[in-house]
Amino acid sequence: DYYKILGIPSGANEDEIKKAYRKMALKYHPDKNKEPNAEEKFKEIAEAYDVLSDPKKRGLYD
């Protein structure tokens, strides 16, 4: 669930989505986080943001 990945409610607005994305992206960026699964988690976060930040894609997802 993209909302769960970003840690936001399904009714989140654009600003909340952007803030959550930035926070999670910094936390899991492969250059900052050396955990083995950090890169995979970072890709999931980027995919979630891509879908939820685009009103058309978000509409299809919801």
Rank of each mutant, 00 (worst) to 15 (best):
Y21H: 07
Y21T: 02
K19N: 14
D31C: 12
K18Y: 09
D54V: 15
Y21V: 02
K27D: 12
N13G: 08
P30W: 06
D15Q: 06
G7T: 03
I8E: 00
P55W: 05
K41P: 05
E40D: 10
K4I: 03
K34L: 10
N13H: 09
K18H: 04
Y28S: 04
K18P: 02
L52M: 02
E14M: 10
D50L: 05
K57Q: 12
K4A: 02
F42W: 15
P30S: 11
G7C: 09
E14R: 05
L52S: 01
P36W: 06
K43S: 13
D15Y: 04
P30I: 11
L26S: 13
G59R: 06
G11V: 06
A25S: 15
Y3M: 00
K32L: 02
N33Y: 12
K43R: 14
P30N: 09
L26Q: 15
Y21P: 02
K57C: 03
E39R: 13
Y49G: 06
D50V: 12
F42M: 03
D1G: 09
K4L: 08
L6N: 02
P55R: 06
G7Q: 13
K57E: 06
G59F: 01
K23N: 12
D1K: 10
K43P: 03
A25Y: 10
I8V: 11
E35K: 05
D31L: 11
K23Y: 08
L52F: 01
K43D: 05
R22I: 10
N33F: 09
E44I: 12
G59W: 03
A48M: 00
P9Q: 09
K18F: 06
N13F: 01
D15P: 04
E14D: 06
K56Q: 08
A20I: 01
K34V: 11
G11P: 03
E16Q: 11
K34Y: 06
Y28A: 11
L6E: 04
I17V: 11
D50Q: 04
K19S: 12
A38I: 10
K18D: 11
K27G: 10
D50R: 10
L52A: 02
I8L: 12
K19I: 14
K19A: 14
I45H: 00
K43F: 14
H29Q: 04
A38H: 11
N33K: 14
S53E: 04
G11S: 07
A46D: 06
D31R: 13
V51G: 05
A38M: 10
D1R: 01
Y28K: 05
E44N: 01
E14P: 04
G11R: 05
G11K: 06
A20G: 07
K23C: 15
N33C: 11
D50N: 12
D15G: 05
P55I: 09
Y3V: 00
E14H: 10
Y2L: 09
